[in-house]
Design a protein around this nucleic acid. Structure first.
Lengths: 220, 220
DNA sequence: ACAAAAGTGTTGCCAATACACCCATGA
DNA sequence: TCATGGGTGTATTGGCAACACTTTTGT
């Protein structure tokens, strides 16, 4: 038995203190004019991982971003024209990096736009379900992955980091406990730099030290 | 673009103190005479979850077992005849329940057999990779899932439970700490029964209280 | 001087670890 | 009586949660 085969992408970012998801407005049936996850058909002979890269590139202009597989969604009724199996992937991009790069290249979608995770429109197909599943996984893995750091610019303040945690978890955290936990973890590099252009006390800037993080994971 | 679509099952069990995986010996090309995960094509119009149940049934005689999705494997070269996308699922069955039910129904495989996880033969396709990925997930989730209890008979001793943990994790655990942890968790029901037929002090039997377990998870 | 956010310590509790001996039973 | 696994307690440690005030800076 054969099935059509697509990829759908859950692309997260962080802006205005909120976790955002990139959606596209469809310009073709079915679900014309609906918002949906960026997604395409995989081409014949194309490796799934290559298809993922291609689609990510076509929607964001980004390259060399690792996307993690969420799983397959294969409901017979998820597409009105019969089964179309989709494998969902997710990733996180820095908002600054993609701000001016979001450009729909294909004609089947009209525009791409960021939506706050708690203000999603109604979505085509089973894409709402895909997002919810992805979000749960993101929350569950927040302490074992580099996800939060992908949300932030290279140099960031501790308050920004805390806001990113809070955006993912959907709840507020205690400032002192958060800072203790982070500084104990030992994979932030403290810079000799502070914020600029703020009208209050400037905060110290930090960098994520991926090396040390990887090492700590290696202990098992 | 279309692709063939199969399901592969990683079925775990526990016997002779070891974690076991059920494999089938193929009787058709490609990979004739090789060992492989039990797997079939999904039928047209068949829901993926139904296909999973069907395949599990055909190989083990078991019904109403929940299988968890591991993910999609879609390498263009994973099958010599071109891309065959497979979605891998995994589950755990009680060895006693299936001991006499393992019966290949289809003719494309010659026999089904349990293999200890650390004594696997060479496997067809990318099945070794699928198993390794599944095993990592099993280890990671051992404390948040009912997996270990699926390995054991309904009534079991604490030592048996500890052995199941050790089989999954691949390492030994401290007896007292293990018992403390388990009895603190509060989802074991102590029975007024002990082991029979052993030539040493008979151990108390316990049951897993799924209700309480679910409740504890609900706290988040 | 004021507004706004940065930054900082202590305490109590709980969970996880390390570790060694006596007990009950059947052969 | 012996072999075998069953069963038990304590002390230490490290991480997590609760909680409020002072400092710095720009306007």
């Amino acid at each position: 038995m054969q099935t059509h085969f697509t990829i759908d992408c859950v692309i997260y970012s962080f802006n205005e203190g909120k976790l955002q998801v990139l959606l596209t407005e469809r310009n073709e049936y079915p679900y014309k004019d609906w918002w949906a996850l960026p997604g395409f058909f995989v081409e014949k002979g194309e490796e799934m991982e290559d298809a993922v890269k291609r689609i990510l590139y076509e929607h964001t202009g980004l390259k060399d971003i690792f996307m993690e597989q969420l799983g397959a969604f294969a409901g017979v009724k998820r597409h009105p024209q019969g089964r179309i199996l989709t494998v969902a992937f997710s990733t996180i991009v820095k908002y600054e990096d993609v701000k001016f790069k979001i450009k729909p290249i294909t004609s089947y979608m009209r525009q791409a736009k960021w939506f706050a995770i708690d203000e999603l429109p109604e979505l085509a197909f089973d894409h709402h379900q895909i997002i919810q599943q992805s979000l749960r996984k993101l929350k569950d893995s927040i302490n074992y992955s580099t996800a939060v750091y992908e949300l932030l610019p290279e140099k960031f303040t501790l308050t920004q980091l805390q806001q990113a945690y809070e955006a993912i978890l959907g709840k507020t955290l205690d400032k002192r406990n958060f800072r203790k936990k982070i500084s104990n973890s030992g994979f932030l590099k403290e810079l000799q730099e502070v914020q600029k252009g703020v009208s209050y006390r400037a905060a110290r800037l930090y960098k994520f030290d991926k090396r040390k993080f990887q090492k700590q994971l290696g202990i098992e």
